[in-house]
Computed example of a mutant assay.
Amino acid sequence: MLARTPRATEMDFASILKIPPKPAAIAEAERVWRASVAELEAAQAKHRELHRVYFNQVPGQPPKITAAEVDHAGAEIAPFQARETEAQQALEAQRAAFDEEVAALKPKIEAYRAAIAAKIDELEDFITLGSTFYAASVEARVKLPSKMPSRCQSLLGPHGVGMLRKLLNAVD
């Protein structure tokens, strides 16, 4: 036998609407990625410096560095680029997995929205009773001992329950 699915208004939103904890793996992947970026930048800086030294050599003086050494330093950059790319892909995979967890909240948020809409409908019905009661008192020419029923009509207007409904419908 299938269990009855609870209506949105019967759900315990305090326990359902929880942000999933960010996995420590994301922080670790980000640390690894930042370290790989630092290593890549260091290798690139070394290559640039060797390039600068090579091209600033004075003709007629003994060479401080050879073109082969500059090329070797440039060739050493490739493994650092590969590690940086790999670390970035691992970080993106971790973030994507967390984003999927967060995206799983959408049906819960929609249920929450439906519950709010249902409560607004209930509130509107409840306030309509006060407005109808006040209209009956005016028709019967009876002065009520409270002004509250006379305010119900304005609560039904565009700046009361209508505004609540507009605010709810204005968000995705």
Rank of each mutant, 00 (worst) to 15 (best):
M163Y: 13
E139K: 06
D99H: 06
Q89R: 14
P79A: 13
L129M: 14
Q57T: 13
N56E: 13
A35H: 01
L2C: 04
L17H: 07
E10G: 10
L2H: 09
L129T: 07
L50N: 15
K22H: 02
Q88Y: 10
V53I: 13
Q153E: 04
Q153P: 01
L168T: 02
Q153I: 14
G130S: 12
R141K: 06
F80C: 02
A90T: 12
K166L: 15
G130E: 09
D125S: 05
L91P: 00
Y112N: 11
A38W: 00
Q153Y: 06
A8F: 03
A29P: 02
E100R: 03
L144G: 07
E39C: 02
T66A: 09
E39Y: 01
I26W: 03
R165H: 05
A140D: 08
D172L: 09
N169W: 04
A24E: 14
H51I: 05
L50K: 14
A170I: 12
K147C: 09
K166A: 14
K108W: 10
E49M: 10
L164Y: 15
S154M: 10
H72E: 11
G162P: 03
K46I: 03
K18N: 13
I116C: 14
A45E: 09
L168Q: 11
A42P: 10
R165F: 00
A111F: 08
L50E: 14
S150V: 01
P158Y: 10
R151I: 15
Q89W: 02
A97S: 04
D99W: 00
R7W: 05
M1Q: 08
A25R: 13
A114W: 01
G162A: 13
T132L: 03
